[in-house]
Design a protein around this nucleic acid. Sequence first.
DNA 1: GCCGATTTGTCCGTATGTATC
DNA 2: CGATACATACGGACAAATCGG
Lengths: 244, 244
Amino acid sequence: MPRQKFLGIYSVLKERIESGEYPTGQLLPSENTLIAQFDCSRNTVRRAIAELVRDGYVQTRQGWGVCSIFHPIEQTSYTMGTIESFRETALRTGQKSTTRVAAFSRIQADEALARQTGFPAGTDLFCLWRIHDLNGKPIIFNISYLRADCMPDLTREIAAGSLYRYLEEELGMVIVTSKRTITVEPATDLDRQYIQLGEYNCMAVVTNQAYNSQGIMFEYTQSRHHPAIFRFQDNAIRRPAPKV
Amino acid sequence: MPRQKFLGIYSVLKERIESGEYPTGQLLPSENTLIAQFDCSRNTVRRAIAELVRDGYVQTRQGWGVCSIFHPIEQTSYTMGTIESFRETALRTGQKSTTRVAAFSRIQADEALARQTGFPAGTDLFCLWRIHDLNGKPIIFNISYLRADCMPDLTREIAAGSLYRYLEEELGMVIVTSKRTITVEPATDLDRQYIQLGEYNCMAVVTNQAYNSQGIMFEYTQSRHHPAIFRFQDNAIRRPAPKV
DNA sequence: GCCGATTTGTCCGTATGTATC
DNA sequence: CGATACATACGGACAAATCGG
């Protein structure tokens, strides 16, 4: 049981849903019942349920209850609303991953790059090209720009390992928010050089802007995925009606 | 001011951030200050801030404060973590949209379709092909399967209008949750028949499973987008470290 | 249609824990 | 160490939606 109570309740409920104890389409016990079961306050139960809603496990309806909408099929998604590094995802799904550094340089952001990345013009940056292999096959071509003043001692060797592990464990940097944009772009010569695309002439591109705990954007990365293996899943919740 | 207090505070803070009153990289007033300003409880302020975090406007850090990470550039996204119909999106971005029905039929889900869509085998379904034009150009090919028992009187004519408006306003159905998956797939002959792809040989595919307020999945839709106009944006928040 | 019981949604006040400076 | 800030948790009150009698 985690230190935080609501997370404990959350994972217990999650497991009950996955195990079929609360079947799809049926109501969970009411909040009051759960309060008695877990011996906690109403807010704590509600917090746990809110997380399940975010995960697409249940949905709630005023005056009615909390309803399971779990379907076991979809649990194999590549990534969801959390930040997860390539290495972490591979680990979670039990696959074998390696990373190669194809280029490593230090540059200053010119006007065009500033517009593209969102860094102020003139910012001192590391430019990093990495290839991610999954089960021996190259599938992601990563173009990163990293604020040099946030990681002055970055080397090509470090970049070959887990960049996020280095930032978090070595530098004590806390990665908090990440803004992502998904697009589909024509494959470039560079893409074809690193990724075996076969018949495909496009790439699935995830553009990622990561912020550290001080609110500074320290990373801009274009992850150019082989289209055949790319998969992104999320759950949307309809907001209360747009008041006329 | 909306009926709900936290939404009012949310939109006031949002506007202050957008207007530059709380510049990017700086801290917002502390919770206690905001409590005094809005004359409300701590929970209410925190709820409003939580929404801003979800929107990627701010990030919070214990012991430090709430920090603006707003960048005005990115506000043109095609869609975000909410459910929005094609028509609503077009309206919001001020574009001209039309919808054509290319096919309309009534079928029963066989085993293969059941596996693909998640409907139980044998379910009575409407099958609907629609083409969405934006500013006169066809850009989305929509393949929908709809539970017939949720909308027995659906006709081709109704489908040509806004399907969601019909479901919500005419049938009083409330759309709550939607599970989306984004992939990239090779363009089919059918795709090419309806969408002018030019050099592209792929489509950006958004697979959507929509649930009504009773927790019943009533819609499965494959939205096959022209890759050049497809854009999906979201904000990820790093969960507290995976407890080892 | 109304009423009452149940259930979730919103809001308040307070206390304590924990991270930051 | 203390002051300040956010994070978690508790308990209570009322509102709004749902459903059954």
